[in-house]
């Protein structure tokens, strides 16, 4: 089980060939109160680095990019019903969607937790 981060503040947790994706705790703290999420439907093909979901606070709308390529197998319906979970549990229950990995080697370019932490501190 590995957890990796992107420079665009998504996290991805890989178990076998299933990747769970969300936005980082740092990202949620910057967004403010999240009021709406729009998640990809199951079956949609996602490409690494391309738009996959939308997260909205009152005054900002942000795109969430796919950290890795693959096919969406599940979107987090609980998050749609209660978007505040992005704020309260960004890296646990507030996950966005799960995808079937297409190419595990794409993970290599992503940061591990320590590297991401350093990245955030350095750039913000």
């Amino acid at each position: 089980m590995t957890k990796k981060f992107t420079k665009d503040h998504e996290w991805v947790l890989v178990e076998g060939d299933i990747a769970t994706v969300g936005v980082s705790d740092f990202a949620q703290s910057q967004l403010g109160d999240v009021v709406f999420v729009e998640l990809p439907e199951a079956g949609r093909e996602l490409e690494q680095g391309k738009e996959a979901a939308v997260v909205e606070s009152v005054k900002a709308a942000s795109d969430v990019y796919a950290p890795v390529s693959g096919t969406v197998i599940e979107a987090n319906q609980a998050l749609v019903d209660d978007p505040s979970m992005v704020n309260s549990a960004a890296e646990t229950d507030g996950w966005f969607f799960k995808i079937q990995l297409k190419d595990a080697s794409e993970l290599d370019a992503l940061m591990d937790e320590a590297a991401y932490k350093a990245f955030v501190e350095e750039s913000h």
Partner: peptide, 12 residues
């Protein structure tokens, strides 16, 4: 994700 952190606070 693209992040617009210019958004103003919205909660009380």
């Amino acid at each position: 994700m693209s992040m617009n952190n210019q958004g103003r606070p919205s909660a009380i």
